[in-house]
């Protein structure tokens, strides 16, 4: 079995840091946009706890502002740890609030896939620590966490396909209806979903146990395409739903960097000009 390595070059560390920072940046900005539009926090404050609309409005907006400051904070050595932990706590709290508020289908699934999102700042924290310490050596757990994140995202997506997620059906029907001359029936869309679900689950399992280059490219492509459907189907005004899925692309990209580092290391060690130890 080909195993990815965690000893990589400093350039590789910097690339991983850049990808994770960018992913987190977009993800948190999308979160802030949803907070500004009114999200589950205001629902819980007003509906469950009887706070006023203006209080909930300002609570959500204040949280969005705090999150933006936290985002700025991750770019400074003195503050990045505190800021990333704050973002993590917020994301965990938000996932749990969503779960207990109900009102969405497949809540358990969203809770599972949310795990991959809330440890995104922790991954960034570890990568930044390595970068600041100029330590080209990630913990094996870091790599496992990246793989597990992708596993959870794709597994949840696959299970959603098998459960005939209504939104997925409508994306397929909407796409074929709007952009092709083919008119699909719901049953055909469901059959297509089963195929997609099998591929997603296979990809999820493979990424955990036997990642390979073509698979990683597939994950990047599919993660991007499925996120893009949010705006292809429901217009550009649904952009926050697209942006919030940036980890679906960002995390496989991190894996790709690891893969490239591994290849470089293999080429280096197999080079005839290198002294053999």
């Amino acid at each position: 079995m080909r195993v990815l390595i965690t000893n990589i070059s400093l350039k590789g560390v910097t690339s991983i840091v850049q990808v994770l920072k960018f992913t987190l940046l977009i993800y948190v900005i999308a979160f802030c946009l949803q907070l500004i539009k009114g999200a589950v926090i205001s629902s819980i404050l007003v509906v469950d706890n009887g706070f006023s609309e203006s209080f909930s409005f300002w609570t959500e907006k204040s949280l969005a502002i705090v999150l933006i400051f936290c985002l700025i904070g991750i770019f400074f050595k003195a503050t990045y740890k505190l800021c990333l932990w704050a973002i993590t706590l917020f994301l965990i709290g938000y996932a749990l609030l969503n779960y207990f508020n109900g009102g969405k289908s497949l809540l358990e699934l969203t809770l599972i896939s949310a795990i991959s999102k809330w440890w995104l700042p922790i991954l960034t924290l570890h990568a930044l620590s390595c970068d600041y310490k100029q330590k080209p050596n990630f913990s094996p757990l870091f790599l496992l966490a990246v793989q597990l994140s992708i596993f959870l995202i794709f597994m949840a997506h696959g299970i959603g396909c098998f459960s005939k997620n209504a939104l997925y059906i409508d994306y397929i029907l909407g796409f074929f209806g709007d952009y092709t001359s083919i008119t699909l029936k719901q049953k055909q869309a469901e059959q297509l979903l089963i195929i997609i679900g099998i591929i997603d689950i296979l990809a999820a399992i493979l990424v955990l146990f036997k990642p390979f280059k073509a698979l990683i490219y597939w994950l990047i492509f599919w993660g991007f395409l499925t996120s893009l459907f949010r705006i292809v189907d429901a217009s550009i005004l649904n952009y926050s739903e697209f942006l919030i899925r940036v980890p679906h692309v960002g995390l496989p990209l991190v894996l790709l960097i690891f893969w490239n580092q591994k290849n470089k290391a293999e080429n280096y060690s197999s080079s005839p000009s290198l002294p053999k130890s």
Binding site: S105, A166, I169, D170, L173, G174, G177, K185, Q186, A189
Partner: peptide, 11 residues
């Protein structure tokens, strides 16, 4: 509104 709106229900 909690199931597919474009599929069987639309028909």
């Amino acid at each position: 509104t909690e199931t597919s709106m474009a599929g069987d229900q639309l028909e």
